[in-house]
Nucleic acid binder design. Structure first.
Ligand code: NAD
Ligand code: NAD
Lengths: 185, 185
DNA sequence: ATAATATTGTGTTTTTTTTCACAATAATTG
DNA sequence: CAATTATTGTGAAAAAAAACACAATATTAT
């Protein structure tokens, strides 16, 4: 909406775009504070800033990608993350052909140096883009190095301690959800 | 578990791996039928087959990828989909440099031929991997061509009719969820 | 054959999420 | 300046999801 030049909007409009009810938009926001004006709605700029504060976008989170294959490379080349709070600053791979290369100004390090580099740069977020078989081992090393949050593309369920947040992106499962819809609708 | 050579398992074990309670595993399965044996658990092979039937994996779903950039290419090269119910059979791009190429035996067609090719091949699932600005237009054309389900990687909310299923994969939003966790835990 | 153990499927309860309903408020119109 | 309109924030109600509790059942051990 900001890009469209809009100044303010109602919870109804937000809900329309997010495909949820206006009342849910307001209830959800209300758990963080009061950001709107009765009868007028929300100032888009202001609401965006408030949400960014809530998310923690003010601090820039530096990220490591493990596994620079098809998917890892796509992530390194994606400029969209930089525009948000997240910046990929390090990558790791086990393939000697890839180690030492730089993709979009992100250096690819030897996986064997992962503990040292993660600690040195004080990274807290890691993205798993290695083959499934390597994922648990990589995760163990990341956690030992101080990583606290993980985005996992490998289609395996990884065990992590309770204080580590892990979000799985299982694309095959998502496609299967579409297949389920098609067979049952 | 099948790969590990296991024959049967309990709902407790499934829950442990999926990080949910055993009782939820059983309740969820119970909405499709009774697949277990009291006191013995589930036969892994059998349960897998039943779940595949529920999802609709018996029929192979042919898929089109629109936008063969960094991400689209990674998807085309991913062998994991073939092993499941989903097979990418067509790709589309607007870049003359890419049109006509074949990646991992998937031909890249001109976006201008999208309606014809989708209809001809009777595809029902599409993956959006174009820039955000193009996404809505591409979706409109896909729906006109008979596509019923969409996986969308563009970080925009797309409008589709009620009978079209769309699943959004917003990676930036997922990274922001990790940032939120780190700032608030 | 009986007891002990493991574990399912489901009715009931609890918790969480979503929706409803409306008073409060800000701006606009007549 | 009163009436009308738009829209928020929130307590209450409804709906949905998750967890609990346990009878039923299959197997193994005694
Ligand atoms: N490509 C996709 O579209 C796609 C889709 C869904 C899921 N995935 C999953 O994402 C992950 C990556 O997929 P991909 O297609 O990029 O695979 P890929 O084989 O192209 O890349 C894997 C990379 O990891 C590196 N690697 C292997 N072992 C490593 C280790 N121990 N430490 C560090 N690096 C290591 C390899 O050298 C390679 O560069 C896989 O788990 C895959 O199942 C990918
Ligand atoms: N690369 C990533 O890791 C990543 C991460 C998050 C989100 N995304 C999103 O996924 C989408 C694709 O990302 P990407 O990095 O592959 O981008 P990209 O620029 O590398 O590729 C986009 C491709 O789409 C093609 N294209 C443009 N207009 C088209 C049209 N009208 N019809 C058909 N093809 C068209 C381009 O020629 C190009 O090949 C974007 O919306 C991006 O925001 C990508």
């Amino acid at each position: 909406m900001e890009k469209e030049g809009r100044i303010s909007c109602s919870s109804y409009e937000i809900g329309e775009r997010a495909d949820i009810l206006d009342t849910k938009v307001r209830k959800d926001l209300s758990s963080f504070g009061q950001f709107g004006i009765a009868g007028r709605g929300y100032k888009i700029k202001n609401l965006k800033k408030k949400i960014e504060e809530i998310i923690g976008k003010d601090s820039i989170w530096k990220i490591a990608v493990i596994g620079v294959g098809n998917l890892g490379t796509a992530l390194l080349k994606y400029p969209g993350f930089k525009e948000e709070c997240c910046k990929i600053v390090l990558a790791f791979d086990s393939d000697p052909q890839k180690i030492g290369k730089i993709i979009d100004s992100v250096p690819i390090y030897d996986i064997e140096s992962i503990e040292r580099e993660i600690r040195k740069n004080n990274l807290k977020i890691g993205i798993i883009a290695t083959p499934s078989e390597e994922a648990q081992n990589v995760v163990n090393r990341l956690i030992k190095s101080g990583i606290k949050a993980l985005l996992n593309f490998a289609p395996v369920s990884l065990s992590v301690p309770d204080d580590i947040k892990i979000i799985d992106i299982d694309l095959t499962a998502r496609l299967e959800a579409l297949a389920y819809y098609l067979t049952h609708k």
